[in-house]
Each structure stands twice: as structure tokens, then as C-alpha cells.
């Protein structure tokens, strides 16, 4: 059966994920070394040690994401995160930066490495580089590939592949997107925050709720119109071609109906996005996919309800998995 890899932004969310049936949980330290560096979120060193011990006691694994790109003047922060995650007993480190992979492979040669989606490794050559050079065992594929492309890449790679099945979508070249930097000076790639909340404002106006990022108005929602995250990529803009969502609509990925195709493609693990979400999301989404995987395994019909209430914009998509624009 494919593994279910679940998000946790807090120790309580990690426990919820285990209760709901996670095979593994991914999480990060409460600093700029991980790509979900939001206020009040993530794990102290002590919480990480205790959470890994708890997970191991319950038969689950913990993958520690250290997936931002180190600043040249402060590489030791990222090195320390690697050392601390290894000593805490992490089952794998999820890394994006080549220098950090090199450090880890040399310093901790027996530590299992996964290539983060932030590395944007989207072809067999790139994956082979990580596997051969640093011994990476798994690659998290970017959300820009179709299922046939995933099957082809998996067939040609020595690495295991992991793909997203639910949650927020980044259709940009992940780890390379500068939209947040442009508006705020901070990015998921360097500081671990896309559209940092310190730069987000919501204003109630006569026309509805106006959201701004770094002083740029990026959207306005009527009173009952579903909303999305206040990111530039999901902003609604007026251009010479008309007004609307220029980059992407505010929708969430939901690949529940593609699980069989992903299994047949040789995918090893399924990942749920959402370390920034609450326990209710983790509990519901993990349980949903645990049931769906059990049904897939037994060949029965999955009796599962919609995850629509948890989706951005109250809508879901199969994203690039089912490309209709080629």
C-alpha cells in the first residue's frame, strides 16, 4: 500500500495525524529553516524530540522538513537544524538545498534523505543527480506533472517518488517563485513564509472584503463569495485582457479519484499539504485518505464524503495530474 504522509504544524496536530492513520508525519523546527515558518507554528527542539519518540511508539515515522535555502551569512542555522533533527531521531530529512544535502550526506551518511518539492526536481536527470550524489532515497515531485509523466519519471528513477494528493497548490516552479518576495521582501524559499501574515491586511469595505499584501490590493470578495489565501498567485487583477485570476484560481488539489492511477504509476507515498492548518483539517483529511486507501486496497467502493469544506475557495481541482490544456 502507498504510504500516507501527513502534515503537522504543532505537536497536537502530529498526535491527531497519528490517531487518524498517518504512516508518517512531516514537520519542521520553529525557525526559518522550514518552508512553513508561520507565527505560533512548528516545533521547538524539545517538542521535536518528544514528538518523534511518541510517533515511534505508535508505529509512525517523522520526516523533518529543512527545506528552505540557507543564507550565505548564516549557514550554521541550517547545519544546526540538520544536526538536531538527526539527533532527535528523524526518520528522514526533507531537504531542498544542494549545499545542505552535501553537508548532511558527509556529516550524517546513514541519515535517510528526501528531496523536497522545493528543489523542483521534475525530470529523471535531476532526480538521478540527487540520488547518485547525495544518496537521496525519495523525491517529492512538483505539482506540475501529469499522472503519465509521474509514471514515466518513476519508471526511470532509482529514487522513490512521493506526490501531493490534497491541499494548497503551487503551480509555479517551486523553490523558484519570487512573487511573495516581490511584494514583501520575504519568500517561502528563504524565510519560509509565502505571503507573510505580517504583510497581510483585510479591510471591510462597502464592496466586500479587500485583501492586500505588502500594500498591494490583491483581491476583493463579496460578502458570501468563497475566499482563498492572500497570495499574489491567487490575486484577482484588472489587465488589458480583462479582470480575473491571472495566475491561478483559489482552489485546492484533491486527487482522491486518482489514487489508483498513482498506485499504478509506481508512486511510493502520498502527501497531504497543510502544516499551517489546524487539527480539525489534519484529522479529517488524513482520515479521508486512510479510508480511500483502504478501499483501494480491498477493491471496494470508498464510502467517503467530500473534503470541499476544507478547500481553498471551496473548490477542488485535479491540477496538472489531469492536464487538459495540452
Amino acid at each position: 500500500m502507498m504510504e500516507l504522509i501527513c502534515p503537522a504544524g504543532t505537536p497536537a496536530a502530529l498526535r491527531s495525524a497519528i490517531d487518524a492513520g498517518a504512516d508518517a508525519i512531516y514537520c519542521g523546527f520553529n525557525d526559518e529553516t522550514n518552508a512553513r515558518n508561520f507565527p505560533g507554528l512548528n516545533f521547538s527542539r524539545d517538542e521535536m524530540r518528544k514528538s518523534i519518540a511518541l510517533a515511534h511508539g505508535r508505529g509512525a515515522r517523522v520526516l523533518v522538513a529543512i527545506n528552505t535555502f540557507p543564507r550565505a551569512s548564516a549557514v550554521e542555522i541550517w547545519h544546526r537544524a540538520v544536526d538536531d533533527a538527526v539527533s532527535a531521531g528523524a526518520d528522514a530529512l526533507i531537504l531542498a538545498d544542494i549545499g545542505l544535502m552535501d553537508y548532511t550526506a558527509r556529516r550524517h551518511p546513514s541519515q535517510r534523505l528526501h528531496v523536497s518539492v522545493q528543489a523542483a526536481a521534475a525530470n529523471p536527470d535531476a532526480i538521478a543527480f540527487y540520488a547518485e550524489t547525495f544518496g537521496a532515497k525519495r523525491v517529492v515531485l512538483p505539482r506540475v506533472l501529469s499522472v503519465p509523466e509521474i509514471a514515466e519519471i518513476t519508471r526511470e528513477s532509482a529514487c522513490e517518488t512521493e506526490v501531493f494528493v490534497f491541499g494548497g497548490l503551487c503551480v509555479m516552479a517551486e523553490g523558484r517563485c519570487s512573487l511573495s518576495s516581490y511584494a514583501t521582501g520575504k519568500s517561502p524559499n528563504m524565510q519560509g513564509v509565502c505571503s507573510p501574515p505580517s504583510h497581510v491586511t483585510y479591510e471591510q469595505t462597502a464592496e466586500g472584503t479587500k485583501s492586500s499584501l505588502g500594500g498591494f490590493a490583491i483581491n476583493r470578495f463579496a460578502a458570501t463569495e468563497p475566499a482563498g489565501y492572500p497570495t499574489l498567485c491567487k490575486g484577482r487583477f484588472s489587465t488589458a485582457q480583462g479582470a480575473g485570476y491571472i495566475f491561478e484560481d483559489p482552489v485546492s488539489l484533491d486527487a482522491t479519484t486518482l489514487l489508483k492511477g498513482l498506485r499504478d504509476a509506481g508512486v511510493t507515498a502520498l502527501k497531504i499539504e497543510g502544516r499551517q492548518r489546524g487539527r480539525a483539517y489534519v484529522e479529517s483529511v488524513v482520515r479521508h485518505f486512510r479510508h480511500a486507501l483502504a478501499a483501494l486496497e480491498s477493491g471496494s467502493e470508498a464510502d467517503i464524503a467530500s473534503l470541499k469544506p476544507f478547500t481553498e475557495g471551496q473548490a477542488s481541482t485535479l491540477g496538472a495530474y489531469r492536464k487538459t490544456w495540452r
Binding site: P226, A227, Y281, T311
Partner: peptide
């Protein structure tokens, strides 16, 4: 923690 804050934001 019985509902997700982001989901409540999305549904307004």
C-alpha cells in the same frame, strides 16, 4: 480545535 480556521476564512 473542532473546526479549521483557514476553512472558516475560505467560507467567509
Amino acid at each position: 480545535g473542532r473546526v479549521d480556521g483557514d476553512a472558516l476564512m475560505f467560507s467567509r
